[in-house]
Simulated assay, not measured.
Amino acid sequence: MQKRKALGKGLSALIPDEQGFEESERRFFMCPVALIEPNPYQPRVDFSGPELDRLVDSVKESGIVTPLLVSRYESGYRLIAGERRWRAAQKAGLDRVPVIIREASGREMLELALIENLHRKDLNPIEEALAYRRLLDEGGSTQENIAKRLGRDRSTIANSLRLLTLPGSIQQDVMEGRLTMGHARVIAGIKDDRARKELRDMIVRRGMSVRQAENAAKRLAAAGPGKAAKVQADAYYYSLSENLKRALGTKVEISKKKKGGRIVIHFYSEEELDRLLGILT
């Protein structure tokens, strides 16, 4: 049985880059844009935004430099990789685009589209996770096999798939950039949906870093659901102490009481005390 090659070693073996374009002239041809349909296995959902607008401007100026990868389909062709270029060509008013034909199964079309987006960092974390899930569901594969095929660690695949356990509203936050992949992983580590929502609100409202979110998650787990107000206050003071620590270059503790509180600034030598006094006075 022939061993399948891994796809995670770059796009150069699949799609020629600008330098390799001349070498591929014998393999590509100028295909009418109207004969090409999108890849139904495309993992990317959102193609809008300034990046596509810049690509349209580039296409108007220089045309399509790198050929699209397509397979034969009915009376035309179906995209495997290069959907952004295809969409940009349509917006730019091109009638024909350079394409290279490669026959591929549905699974291979998904893999090739996925690896193109991963290498070009075109997918948001949820789109990436959904693509892995589709490979598992439709390809009958395992996380380990997918990792080998895509040149990734199995833990990367597993951590990505965990994002799909999050409520749809939080997944939307990740897709729209309100939460980072790191934030989402912290929230995914909490099992209670109410606690997840409380932590999400704290992160967005306070603009927490991932480290601050991790600390808040620990406090929330210890306090239990419904204690978000106290946890949020604790997280706020922790955030302040971290900011002071970075500003002063030493350990800082803030403790809150019913009325007032205290700030403790640590020093470990007379020289460090003089340095801190120079900053504070």
Rank of each mutant, 00 (worst) to 15 (best):
L7Y: 12
D17E: 12
D17R: 11
Q19R: 14
Q19S: 10
E25P: 00
R26A: 09
P32N: 04
A34D: 11
I36R: 00
I36H: 00
R44G: 05
D46S: 09
P50F: 11
D53Q: 15
D57K: 13
K60T: 02
P67T: 00
L68W: 00
L69R: 04
L69E: 01
G76A: 07
E83F: 04
R84G: 09
W86A: 00
Q90G: 02
G93E: 03
R96Q: 02
G106S: 14
R107I: 09
E108Q: 12
A113Y: 09
E116R: 07
R120P: 01
N124P: 05
I126G: 02
E127T: 04
E127W: 12
A131P: 03
Y132E: 01
R134E: 07
L135Q: 02
E138Y: 11
G139R: 06
K148T: 07
K148Q: 14
L150R: 06
G151K: 10
G151Q: 06
A158T: 09
N159G: 11
N159S: 13
L164I: 08
Q171Y: 10
E176D: 13
G177Y: 12
T180Y: 15
H183N: 11
H183D: 08
A188S: 14
R194C: 02
D201K: 12
D201H: 10
V210W: 09
Q212R: 11
R219E: 11
A222S: 12
G224M: 10
P225A: 14
G226A: 10
K230A: 13
A233P: 01
A247S: 13
G249E: 04
V252G: 07
S269Q: 10
L273D: 05
L276C: 08
